[in-house]
Design a binder for these strands. Structure first.
Length: 458
RNA sequence: GUGACUGUAGCUCAACCGGUUAGAGCACCGGACUGUGGCUCCGGGGGUUGGGGGUUCAAGUCCCCUCAGUCACCCCA
């Protein structure tokens, strides 16, 4: 359609913004619980921040241009380089380990598909300065905690984990020729998505001996860890790596999330960058792209920012997560509605309606009324109440005659009427007014609990 | 970047073999129901049929191009 947002970009209408806010709230809430603190950086960065490490070929996937000062710049496609720069600049002064998170909007110039747009929001959470696998476990607990916070369980989402160091030692043990290692990883990454025969053929082409091909195919199987334990567990380096993975799994158990986790040695997560335990979160049905991916990158800060600190981190985008929540009916159905909708009764004046709104708002309530002189003075109470219903408000307030405090409360879900001390609310005394509102809400909650509404709210 | 499929109102969909002024439901706005409720009834705004070109007496319908979307590949920080 012409005139809409650019391809791969989104307009957030209020209902959709509510979805986004729902996800952001869960991200921030869980990060707070894990004592991560929020940071941010510029959405626009020098182009070479991204080309320096990855080379010029990634420019094709960047939103980049020359600014009016002749600088080559790019919209940030990822947060890690910015994060690395910020940590490096104050590395000596920061209390370690650093536990930071951010919710940047990221951009990539690529063809859009389901779950993959040109713009998205991505939670980035990182721990810097701690090499222990306890930190790896802590980080995965954040990602899983977010799933729980959003109402998802281990039947909805699976965490798959692997370890780059274990894989490296296994490839040596399997006797994969060094030149064929990239191919081996690429094939491993495709386990489950590509027929076994095709994968075998690719490995043979790369020059792997028959036994190595068999062993590598075995790595993609669900019970690969036990398989490798019995085949290569006697080799020192392998034993050490498996021991580390076992310790990690133990920590995950202590953190209460072991049931979410499957060991899956086919998780590769790119060919460079990661140096230790890696993980991905997927929907259990396998219908969507990865929800989240991360792992240990102990040498990246040295390469990028010049400080030698171990680090673990993950990224979790809002797009795939949002798809999953919608599929499971776990998204809020609509934008937030007001708590009160004020209606003018027959004898009410516009002044009184406004005064009641002001009093309720001063006490902290969200209040709507038709801001129309015409409607407040001539439209029937009946029609105004229809509008109140459509607003989604919890309560209708009918302002009546003589006194500003002469109001009648209506529960829009018909759970039963609740009295509001309107005199106190309109007394002008903030403490009395807030107490009146608190008492009202408490009564309303009780009423709703003991008399469930007969009909659902719209 | 490559390939396949799909584009009609905000949404879900109609419209015979190419044939009058492209319709309906939902949603939205207004009104009636003689001033306290989601019902019902009446009315209204909304479309260059994604865009452009072609064939034809006549195109939403057939052909070409283009744009957009969906899916797969590639890639995945």
């Amino acid at each position: 359609m012409a005139g809409g947002a650019l391809p791969g970009f989104r307009d957030f209408y209020p209902d959709e913004f509510a979805h986004r806010a729902h996800i952001f709230r869960a991200w921030r809430e869980v990060c707070r619980r894990f004592a991560f603190v929020e940071y941010d950086g510029p959405p626009l960065e020098p182009l070479d921040l991204y080309t320096k490490k990855s080379g010029d070929e990634i420019v094709g996937q960047l939103y980049n241009f020359e600014d009016k000062g002749g600088r080559q710049v790019a919209l940030r496609p990822e947060m890690t380089p910015t994060f690395a720069r910020m940590v490096a600049a104050r590395a000596n002064a920061l209390r370690k380990p650093v536990r930071w998170f951010s919710v940047p909007q990221l951009f990539r110039y690529e063809r859009a598909q389901r779950g993959r747009l040109r713009e998205h929001f991505q939670l980035n959470a990182d721990i810097v300065g701690e090499a222990s696998e306890v930190a790896d476990a802590e980080l995965l607990a954040v990602a899983v905690g977010i799933m729980q916070e959003l109402g998802l369980g281990p039947d909805d989402v699976r965490a798959r984990i692997s370890d780059r160091r274990l894989l490296n030692t296994l490839l040596v043990a399997i006797e994969v020729p060094p030149a064929a290692v990239p191919t081996a990883y690429a094939v491993l990454d495709k386990a489950g998505r590509q027929p076994e025969a095709v994968r075998r053929e690719k490995l043979r082409e790369a020059g792997l001996p028959g036994a190595a091909v068999d062993a590598l195919i075995g790595l993609g199987r669900p019970d690969a860890l036990d398989l490798m334990r019995s085949s290569y567990g006697s080799i020192g380096a392998v034993a050490e790596a498996i021991g580390r993975l076992d310790a990690y799994l133990g920590h995950l158990g202590s953190l209460g999330i072991r049931e979410w986790v499957d060991v899956d040695l086919s998780i590769v997560r790119g060919l460079t960058y990661y140096t230790g335990i890696v993980f991905e979160l997927f929907d259990a049905k396998g219908e969507l792209r990865a929800i989240c991916g991360g792992g240990r990158y102990d040498s990246l800060l040295a390469d990028l920012g010049g400080v030698d600190l171990p680090a673990v981190g993950f990224g979790m985008g809002d797009v795939v997560l949002g798809e999953l929540l919608k599929d499971r009916g776990l998204m809020p159905e609509a934008a937030p509605a007001p708590e009160f909708y004020i209606v003018a009764g027959p004898e009410a004046t516009v002044d009184r309606v406004l005064a009641v709104a002001a009093a309720l708002r001063a006490a902290g309530a969200a209040v709507e009324y038709p801001p129309s002189y015409e409607k407040l003075t001539t439209q029937r109470t009946n029609s105004q109440l229809q509008a109140a219903v459509k607003s989604g408000a919890s309560y209708g307030v009918v302002v009546r005659g003589a006194d500003v405090a002469d109001v009648r409360l209506l529960t829009m879900d018909r759970a039963g009427n609740v009295e509001l001390d309107a005199a106190a609310l309109c007394s002008g005394d903030p403490q009395r007014a807030e107490k009146a509102l608190r008492d009202f809400r408490r009564q309303a909650d009780q009423k709703r609990f003991s008399h469930p509404p007969s009909q659902q709210q719209p």
